[in-house]
Design a protein around this nucleic acid. Sequence first.
DNA 1: TCTGGGGTCCTAGGACCC
DNA 2: TCTGGGGTCCTAGGACCC
Length: 424
Amino acid sequence: MSIPRFALVDCNNFYAACERVFNPELEGKPIGILSNNDGIIVALSNELKELGIKRGTPGFKIRHLLKKHDIHLFSSNYTLYGDLSSRVMESLAKFTPDLEIYSIDEAFLSLDGLEHLDLNAYGREIRTTIKRWLGLPVSIGIGPTKTLAKAANHVAKRRKELKGVFDITGHPEFEQILTSIDVINIWGIGFQYAKLLHRNGVHNAWLLSRAPQRWIKKRMTIVGLRTVMELNGISCIDLEEKAAPRKEIVSSKSFGKPVTTLQELQEAASSYCIRATEKLREEKQAASQIMVYLTTNRFKNEPQYANFQSIRLPLPSAYTPDFLSAVKKILKYIYREGYKYKKVGVMLSDIIPREMVPLDFFAPTYLDDRRLTIMECMDNINRKMGMNKLTFAGIGKARNWKMKREMLTPHYTTNWKDIPLVRA
DNA sequence: TCTGGGGTCCTAGGACCC
DNA sequence: TCTGGGGTCCTAGGACCC
């Protein structure tokens, strides 16, 4: 049996690269993309990283540097990134149908059956194609396991001479290469585990691959053990070509400025609830549990309060009003007067496919009568006319809960008005 | 003034049952 | 004086990912 071969294709500094596609003047300049509400920096171009700025830095903290270094900050434009992402994935699918879309900017490809090719050259062809078709730079790591493909990608990104592609499979300097990678950069090792490993002298990926497996299992569970096996070339994490159905749906946002009244919280939570139930219907699912939480601003030196509560519906549903009344009840119960609230959120869970919703003799369920039709009708109108064109009275002024996005670029690829013009 | 949002998986421990 | 043991289910919390 031949060893499997995985490739990880990862778009370099994806959000920043997307902004550059339609604004080539940004080439070579430091760019940062801000989170919702223009809060923290979530994506950085290499030039911005080189200035010593870290992911997670609040935008306002570097405001004084913008002019000096010609830094360009943008509000996140997920409509644009999402659209370019699906174009990248479609292009990759032309190379192999065995593909797992792992995140907005990454995909695992199975290269099984292509071992006879020069996989480095094959990777470079993929890379050139994506660059030519979409103007986006990608890096490609290849290895016998997903974890090693990820590690190879890490190397491909950092060593210029590799030209963005690296196959680590059976590499003569395998040991030295893994030794050069700090455990924190290994897929599956986060901040806490990296601390634990360093404390115990396991500083790099090579040492991790040699670590006693019983100790790993005990301290890092079966998940950590899988990572170690994968570093040893034993594939434990398969390619998942079909997206697994979601098990929970969360919708939450921080407020631009503090909120104090129950009324306002109700409106915000209702609008998140509407969004969450829309997603639920998009995936043809139904949920039977809803949780609402709220919290004050932990960065502020003022009285803090956080709480949550959930309600179980008698039957799974995707009928928005079922959830809206639950939201109302919960918020009324957990709300305390006198605090400045920063965030409220809604989470739907216990999700099942809607064909599995049981029928009830005595009460209308989500699936029978006109409820389904009403919801579908609303969803269709909103899809066509824009989000929240048709909505529920309960959200009041909620349309104004819209995020702060002061530095938003146009929706170049998804809105007729925003399509770039070329002047002759 | 201004500090994100949306997910998954695993385990320990309690409740409950026989 | 003696105070079981094993199985299952659920939940909270902690770790991780992007």
